[in-house]
């Protein structure tokens, strides 16, 4: 009985291994190469733990992030019960950093993700169809390029008013033009390759050509670029919150925490640094991961 089970599982394993070897597609190869890169794996693990920490903050956090006591204001790091100290209103720093991750990560990822979808579509249309479409889309994005990203985000947020949704909206608008431009240039170079002509000669229409032959070749480079923008977006989001244009107190968000702890820098400098450190670690990991991804996706190497 036992040996039969073993045999069966061994067989199943062999078949699975075979299938894996045969059907190992492009993304499986990328995944395998990424796994071999120690820096990327380390960054991915750090990011994963940050995300888990943020998601499970209600379960993990030792205190309510909004509740504080004036008696315990600005306790030092290492205080019993508050291992990362307390902030200027006596709220537990560890809990606030955990909860803050929810907002900060969301504000770093969501705008870039939405901009990735919209920007890639715009860039694909502009690059593939060229001519009048290209002029319309690319000249419009050029208008956005006339302003520095920070200024643009602040201006749009300021015009729309403070708040989470408006901050996301303004950041999305800031990131659409650069993504569209990268997507357009990649699409233009792919469109001129012979395999697109060969596909057209096979009788395929533009939609099928974009879906099968262009998208796969454009998505990679644009995705790499977008991951590198996540860190910029986080910093911009933190900046908006710092200026009071993002989320509002008492919500925990790393940028906002940095702002409110600013005044305490002479009393408890290390506590003031903590939210900034979180932003730094997260953006560093995103940048390094995007670098690793670029290497893993360069299939010709």
């Amino acid at each position: 009985m036992n040996s039969t089970t073993q045999n069966l599982s061994a067989q199943a394993f062999a078949t699975a291994a075979e299938t894996a070897a045969i059907s190992r597609g492009y993304w499986a190869t990328v995944w395998m190469r990424l796994k071999r890169d120690k820096v990327s794996v380390a960054c991915a693990l750090v990011l994963l733990s940050l995300v888990l920490m943020a998601v499970f903050a209600p379960l993990l956090a030792p205190y309510d992030p909004a509740q504080g006591t004036m008696l315990k204001r600005l306790s030092a790091i290492g205080t019993t019960g508050h291992w990362l100290g307390t902030d200027e209103l006596g709220r537990d720093m560890l809990s606030r950093l955990m909860y803050g991750g929810q907002m900060s990560l969301l504000m770093g990822l969501l705008p870039v993700f939405i901009a990735f979808l919209i920007g890639t579509s715009l860039g694909l249309v502009a690059g593939f169809f060229g001519g009048w479409w290209n002029t319309l889309i690319m000249r419009t994005t050029d208008v956005f390029f006339a302003f520095p990203a920070v200024l643009l985000a602040i201006a749009i947020s300021g015009a729309l008013g403070a708040g989470f949704v408006n901050a996301i909206l303004s950041l999305t608008l800031v990131f659409i033009p650069p993504i569209a431009r990268v997507a357009e240039s990649v699409t233009t170079s792919v469109r001129n390759l012979d395999f697109v002509d060969a596909a057209r000669a096979s009788g395929a229409n533009s939609f099928t050509i974009i879906r099968v032959h262009v998208l796969g070749n454009v998505l990679g480079p644009v995705f790499i670029y977008a991951t590198s923008l996540v860190s910029v977006c986080m910093i911009l989001a933190a900046g908006l919150s710092f200026l009071g244009l993002g989320v509002k107190p008492p919500v925990a968000e790393w940028g906002l925490m940095l702002n409110t702890l600013r005044q305490s820098i002479y009393v408890q400098p290390w506590i003031s640094v903590l939210p900034g450190l979180m932003i730094f670690i997260t953006s560093l990991c995103f940048n390094l991961l995007s670098d690793g991804l670029r290497g893993a996706m360069d299939i010709k190497r």
């Binding site: 597609g25 395999f195 002509d197 060969a198 099968v212 032959h213 796969g216 070749n217 010709k300």
Partner: peptide
């Protein structure tokens, strides 16, 4: 161009 006329992402 034998390389450019095949989609590098397709088998």
């Amino acid at each position: 161009d034998s390389y450019a006329s095949l989609n590098p992402r397709l088998t």
